[in-house]
Design a protein around this nucleic acid. Sequence first.
DNA 1: CGGGCAATTGAAATACATCAAGGCGTGTGG
DNA 2: CCACACGCCTTGATGTATTTCAATTGCCCG
Lengths: 257, 257
Amino acid sequence: MASVVQPQVTVDEASPKKGPVDPAREVSCAVCQAWDTSLCAVLRSCASEGHAALPISTVHTVPARRTIFHPKEWSEFVPVICSGWSVSSIALPDGRRQILSFLLPGDAVSTAFLFGPLSGRHVEAVTEVTYRKFKRSDLRALLFENPDLFDRISKTWIDERVQADQLALDLGRRTASERIARQILNLAERLAKRGMMSGQTMEFPLRQRHIADATGLTPVHVSKVLGEFQRAHLIEISSRSLTILNEAELRIAADWR
Amino acid sequence: MASVVQPQVTVDEASPKKGPVDPAREVSCAVCQAWDTSLCAVLRSCASEGHAALPISTVHTVPARRTIFHPKEWSEFVPVICSGWSVSSIALPDGRRQILSFLLPGDAVSTAFLFGPLSGRHVEAVTEVTYRKFKRSDLRALLFENPDLFDRISKTWIDERVQADQLALDLGRRTASERIARQILNLAERLAKRGMMSGQTMEFPLRQRHIADATGLTPVHVSKVLGEFQRAHLIEISSRSLTILNEAELRIAADWR
DNA sequence: CGGGCAATTGAAATACATCAAGGCGTGTGG
DNA sequence: CCACACGCCTTGATGTATTTCAATTGCCCG
């Protein structure tokens, strides 16, 4: 238990806490690289503006591959990722599944989650993950006290809608290589925002099965396309990390904008 | 100009008004079949509860195939369909396009639209369409005055999220026949809610390329699948109307639930 | 050391796209 | 009113992107 499986994201170097509850919550968030994005930022800026304190939350740590949120869970808690990678998906009874998004530090599953339980969604850790659980009613209350908190949420909301639209466009109308290239570029961009890129290199804990489920393809085909990309020196993958060697060409392959 | 191209949905039989503004707005809405669903219902119930009056809106009528909302429009107005069918989509510069939803009477494009412009979206009339344009700021104001209006909107938001998830699952993980069958069942269900089904028969103004763009397929392939469905006596299509002959089997083809 | 998940690779199958031609209905202009 | 063009649908032949199947390897972990 003391030695962790993979030395992934080095977010929490200051406080690798194991207990379920962390009273000194501002401290640990202060180190979080995701301060600039998404819900966390919203909550923190709200607190720093002297309004109500941050709502109560409990911190949890789960190992890789563990379920964070179960599809038939009807919970009053909304999880927000603090460190590590996880994945949000829906599945068919026969096993086919579609990944809707990769969740990085600072991400909540969906803004819709703030207003009611979103059944059918499965959230699963890819690496070891720490996350916070907020009580829905707390967040809601906070939302009504702060009109500009509301503004920020609605902005996130719009973003989320745009993301969903793009996903549909990708899955419905793009080729396999385009989808994969876009997924890589998209992740790179999001990691960069969080200061989690070193140059053109990122930690890349995803299995090919994850990429397959996110792009609506087969693991086998993903392997072939990634192979082509590497032979064409667009990217390089080794020991759970990915480097973009030729961003310009990769963007062309992705038909980016 | 007086004779309209297609005698589609017969919603507005009481008032086929042509002018852009309609002062007697409650009246025309009272006939609307969509009173039970979505944004319209929300606004009307809000008004009937004796809060502020319905916000100002202007009524517009456009012929089939006309653009209602342009992708680069950055408008402060949010359109809500009153009668007719329309379609909301996004497109790639090279012409590929993905339909995100068919809009039926009572539908707004997206709840996200209430909070900010959603660029890139194209909304286009399929049949002759009448719609209302609300001013975003009016709706927003109304929203803050009525906490339970907000509740209803957020419910719609969750629904919309679930729809988006299902779309991704369909496009990413389902076969052509499944996608098409589901689209048909889905439309039937939504039309039924609006009282627009006569038994198992519905007006069906969609061209096969609409279905193709909604399901991520080619018009040619859609034709083949619809042909199979008809030969198998699951459905019958003739003169712009569609009948579900064998709902049970169609549901199986759709892998419904 | 053995077992299981992950990745690679090639061969075969298949679902869907593309291409092409013809028919049918409908609006349009002579 | 007719001829015509055009969009829409259908159908068959052919092409291709992706899946499925299968065998092999490496690797992590118990």
